[in-house]
Design a protein around this nucleic acid. Structure first.
Length: 620
RNA sequence: GCCUCGGUAGUUUAACGGUAGAACUCGAGUCUCAUGAGCUCGUAAUUGGGGGUUCAAAUCCCCCCUGAGGCACCA
């Protein structure tokens, strides 16, 4: 029996679990379930990275001990993973005693090899924060929090001789072509290694919440030696379980931590004399409605939000929407679209109509075994291949091609018009088998739905891929009760309709306003004199408009629709007595009028047709 | 500045140097077993721009425009 060991990164619990965490973990779950169905001996590891200064401080701020503090955070993640129906085999915590022992062991091994030495960590330090900053993080050379100058500080620290492994790593990549994936990320990593590697600081004395260095109690292990080690401690290094599952078949990681997994981790293992994992795969990021996900924008999609329309809809969306590896954009609208079209219309409806046909024309019993006309259209090998090369989105697409074939089959065979008993029962048998197939092949992706189909068919829930053979259903087998799999989500249509109704009502005159209301608005013409990119917003311009009697500074969201050149010297209409507002840090005194068609995403500026009209002319 | 990877219908995407193919959206038709579902057909891309190599370029080379990521002690 083959084994399959897959991991996710361990997440930092200072944050609530969100779509980014969910994505990696769902994919890992899909792969784990898939390999279980193949008959592999699977181990799926996820967990939390619970050490570090930030945790220590957050705990202190709440008057708690760090351990107490992280204990409270663990359920946040475990509950989230429950909501997503994730079947991990072990949840590793870096504060686990056995993990800490393994970290020490690895450190000892590397030290014995002569790969660890004491040196000085030098950085830009803010005494107020008691923390180091990189130059990028500084604001005009000052600490971003205290706004005071930072100073260069030297701290004693232990280092790992990463530099020593440059050539060994390059050799390793060369011999293991599959290690860095997707392949297009290879040059990036290899070039970086070729440029030369610096030794990496692995300890700190500035905080205590971590694993003590076994050879110097004044230091605690800093981040990576602690975190990366989870992949072996989580399977009980160096005991039997470790021997069984190591090396890992796949480490799934976000592209942000790829370097540490593709470079530092193999070097650490080489130093410690442990085998390297087979593959590290970097996936992309999710943007939310086209924007970067960030706390400050408040657009972080948490797990309850994600599973709002059902666990399987969320899982389906995450796996299906984006070519695995690339960045993807999340929006509820897209999720709803996939839910309604693919899950409900295509899959849900097929299951429902097949059940109805079986009940109506065969009395809810499996008819006599027939000839395979439908299940042979499912290309298992193609699906398997996609999973093997981690194109999970294509694997799902392959399965849904089969769902389409199923619907086509019903349409073409028209069992409701079929008068020949033999042909009819053959059609029904084929439909029943298709349902059985679906309940098996969908399970890794949408386990809840697969289970529901199995239940309706009165079948065992967890059938392996070995059962993907036509003719396994026995004649006379009674099917179960029909159950609706997915409910229609109306949201987008409703919203569109509401808007339409609002527009119509306006035309009909239900919302007349008084002339006086109109007069309150002071609109004037003006000429755009200067356009600049807003320093803190991607889609905004800061615009200076000449109104004849004065110049105004305005912030306008025109970046997507107009280039700076296009705007220059344009005569526009300005809403001059709109209450000034600060938009992302820049004051905006008024508004430039534009017409918007939200549907086609087109925006056009209102302008006047006579060039000789002076700036500041009143609109009435 | 240097290094990677992208730019293909309205959208998301596919194509060893050999007819640019799908899905969604949109439009038309059609069935009635089914959840206003299904099925069929159709509209739509001079492949970011410009050069070059070739019998043949989305694909190879050069330049430009444009987006994303990296350039290590930053998690």
């Amino acid at each position: 029996m083959a084994k399959y060991y897959v991991t996710t990164p361990i997440y930092y619990p200072n944050d609530i679990p969100h779509i980014g965490h969910a994505y990696t973990t769902v994919i890992a779950d899909v792969l784990a379930r898939w390999h279980k169905k193949l008959g592999d001996d699977v181990f799926f590891l996820t967990g939390l990275d619970e050490h570090g200064k930030k945790i220590q401080e957050a705990a202190e701020a709440k008057g708690m001990k760090p351990r107490e503090f992280v204990d409270k955070l663990v359920p946040e993640f475990k509950n989230a993973w429950k909501l997503l129906n994730l079947n991990y085999d072990h949840f590793v915590r870096t504060t686990d005693k056995d993990h800490e022992l393994v970290v020490k062991e690895v450190l000892k091994l590397c030290n014995k090899k002569g790969d660890i030495y004491k040196g000085f960590y030098e950085g830009l330090y803010c005494t107020g924060c008691e923390a180091y900053y990189t130059e990028k993080e500084l604001e005009e050379g000052n600490c971003p929090i205290h706004k005071k100058p930072v100073k260069t500080l030297k701290e004693e620290s232990y280092f790992f001789r990463l530099s020593k492994y440059q050539n060994k790593l390059l050799e390793f990549y060369d011999k293991n072509k599959e290690f860095i994936s997707p392949g297009y990320r290879k040059p990036e990593i290899i070039n970086r290694v070729k440029e030369g590697l610096n030794d990496i600081s692995i300890s700190r004395t500035s905080f205590k919440w971590g694993v003590d260095l076994p050879f110097d109690k004044n230091h605690v292990t800093y981040v990576w030696f602690d975190a990366l080690t989870n992949y072996i401690s989580g399977i009980g290094y160096p005991k039997a379980k470790f021997k069984k599952y190591w090396p890992a078949d796949l480490h799934l990681v976000g592209k942000d931590i790829f370097f540490f997994h593709a470079v530092l981790w193999p070097a650490m293992l080489m130093s410690a004399g442990i085998k390297n994992p087979k593959k590290v795969f970097a996936h992309g990021w999710w943007t939310i409605d086209g924007q970067k996900m960030s706390k400050s924008l408040g657009n972080v999609v948490n797990i309850p939000e994600l599973v709002k329309y059902g666990t399987d809809s969320a899982r389906y969306f995450l796996v299906r929407e984006v070519p695995f590896g690339a960045d993807g954009d999340f929006s509820m609208k897209l999720l709803v679209q996939r839910h309604n079209k693919e899950l409900l219309n295509d899959l849900g409806n097929f299951v429902n109509r097949s059940m109805a046909l079986l009940n109506k024309y065969s009395n809810g019993k499996i008819p006599k075994k027939g000839k395979d006309e439908l299940c042979k259209l499912f290309n298992f090998n193609a699906t398997k291949k996609f999973i093997d090369i981690l194109e999970t989105h294509n694997a799902l697409s392959e399965i849904f091609k089969f769902v389409n074939e199923c619907n086509k089959y019903v349409n073409e065979k028209q069992p409701w018009n079929e008068e020949d008993e033999k042909i009819l029962s053959n059609i029904l048998y084929n439909l029943a088998e298709a349902l059985r197939y679906l309940s098996i092949i969908l399970e890794p992706f949408i386990p809840e739905t697969a289970g529901k189909i199995a239940k309706q068919m009165n079948l065992k829930d967890k059938l392996s891929f070995k059962e993907l053979k036509f003719g396994k259903l026995k004649e006379g087998h009674k099917i179960g009760k029909t159950e609706i799999l997915f409910m229609k989500i109306e949201e987008e249509e409703k919203m569109a309709k509401k808007e339409e109704i609002a527009n119509v009502e306006m035309v009909k005159g239900k919302d007349w306003i008084e002339f006086g209301d109109w007069e309150k608005m002071k609109l004037r013409t003006g000429t755009i004199k200067k356009v600049q990119q807003h320093p803190n917003a991607d889609n905004l311009y800061v615009i200076i408009v000449d109104l004849g009697y004065e110049e105004r500074q305005l912030v306008a969201g025109l970046k997507k629709f107009y280039a700076i050149d296009e705007l220059m010297n344009k005569k526009v209409i300005v809403f001059t007595n709109l209450k000034p507002a600060v938009i992302r840090g820049i004051e905006s005194e008024g508004m430039i009028l534009a017409a918007e068609d939200a549907k086609s995403c087109t925006v056009g500026l209102l302008t006047v047709d006579k060039k000789e009209l002076k700036d500041g002319a009143v609109i009435r």
